[in-house]
Structures are given as structure tokens and as C-alpha cells.
Amino acid sequence: MSAPVITANLLTKKYKEVAAVDGISFEVAPGESFGLLGPNGAGKSTTMRMVGAVSTRTSGDLSILGLDPNDHGPEVRSQLGVVPQQDNLDMELRVRDNLIVYGRYFGIPNKTAGKKADELLEFAQLSDRAKAKVDDLSGGMKRRLTIARSLMNEPRILLLDEPTTGLDPQARHILWDRLFRLKEQGTTLVLTTHYMDEAEQLCDRLVVVDKGTIMAEGAPAALIRQYSTREVVEVRFGSDRNAEVAERIRGIGERIEVLPDRILIYSENGEAELQKITEMGLEPITSLVRRSSLEDVFLRLTGRSLIE
């Protein structure tokens, strides 16, 4: 395997006394699509900012493309494409000018930047909006423009902080499709998300983070295999009865999780477990058998849901 493009070792960031990132270690290989999955406040953005060489770590080691971002900020940043959690497009410039001007920040000559901008507008499906004001774009379009902007300098690593948070399902799918193409091209992607489906779709490998620490690491399928069962039964008996019913069905399946609004039964065969429940004379208001997901992994690891 070729040398990693990112190496973090016991990376820590403290604000005053509070550790936003608390000693995390990971490596990202070239061409890999690597994810940080975790709830709000887990420290994902803080990690991304340190990797993006715009935040100085409190302790630990960090190497981006063999360089320490503390000493080589501008050089490291020149090799990165950054899509921050909050769009920071230039509202005073039109769509195409946003790209050209951003390219010039990297020292790309005007003419080259213009060509690159047209190419990327097409990639982001925004060619017909080239002269529009940024304010007039929809949320999904702004996000695509931000992604196009992040590619102006032909980055070796693309950092995406919650690329689809706040978008409607259709806009998300368009965005995923674009990111998938980049991935197929061999771009190294590092992305954060609190959507398990996003993590499953886009990440070759991910770390589950919570409260600034890494809880688990692996490929999505491997994590699910390791920390969950093949299937899950979700049954609802009404919020006042769930806990009581859970007591009665102890022993069914491999493991039971009781959430305020539903009971989850982990098993290799969901239908069989559901049948056992109905045979006990219990009638759930709703029931559902599904495959395990990263959500279940997170629940297993932390006892909480990803999205509160």
C-alpha cells in the first residue's frame, strides 16, 4: 500500500479546558474515501479544520501529504479542496466569478481559471447559472457550487464537512452522484456526516466518533457485521408501554435496545423473532424488519441515536 496522505496521531484540540477533539488517530490512503461519522458536537468539524490547515492543534501529530500543517499552512492548503459545513461563497460575485476568483487565490492565472471554471460549472450542472447571483441559487445549487469551487485547484484531497446536511432528498441524490464520480476518478475524499446512509454510500472506510474520541473504525459493512446482527426488528407499542413490553420479551433475539418511541430486537432472522412476539399475544402498533445499519452500530457503541 502506498504511503498515507493523511496521518493523525493522538490529534487533540482544546478550547479553553474543553477538548473538542480528544486524542484521535487515523490514516487515510491515497484514493480512499474516508468518513467521520458522529452526532452533532462530536468534534468532526474541528477535526476537519485541523486537517484543512485552518486550525492549530493543541497536541498530537498531524501530517498532510508529508507536511505538518502548523509549519506549512499555505502549501498544505494549496493541495486541498475544502467544502466547509457552512457555505462561505462570495455573495458579492456572480457564480462563475466565484470560481475564477477562488482559483486566483491559489495563484492560477486568469485564463486557466476561466477554462477550469467552465469545466467545473458543467460538472456541477450549473452552466446555465454562470452569470446568476449566488443569492438566487437554491441550497443544493450553492452546495454544488461550493464543491465546484473546492476543485478549482485540482486538489489531491477533498475535505467535505457534512456535504448534504440541510438539503432535500432530491438535492442530496444529485450531490451524491457528483461525489461518486469524483470517487471513481480516484480523488481522495474525507467527509463527515451524521447520516448513516451517506456514510454507507460514500465511504470505503470510516471512524465512528463521539465526544471527540474514536469509538470504532472499519468499512461500513465490516462495522455492521462486528457490532450488530444481520437484521433488526423494530416494534412500537406506544411510548407508555414500550419499557414494560421490553421486559416481557427479554431473551428474544440476540440483544434488545429500548428507545423512547420503539424497541429494537437484533437478530440474524428478524421475521422469526417478530413471529415469536406475536405468538406471545403481543400486538405491536407497527412492526418492521430491516437490515442493520450504521445507526445500529452507533447505538450499540454509545447507547444513543445519531440524530437526536
Binding site: 506549512h72 502549501e75 485540482e154 476518478q185
Partner: peptide, 14 residues
Amino acid sequence: APTTFAPTRPVQRR
């Protein structure tokens, strides 16, 4: 997708 990945491009050290 546009070209992005350039594994052989050397990192400039200033």
C-alpha cells in the same frame, strides 16, 4: 468528472 487526483505531482516546499 474533472481531473483532480494527481498522485505524482510533487508538493512544493517553500
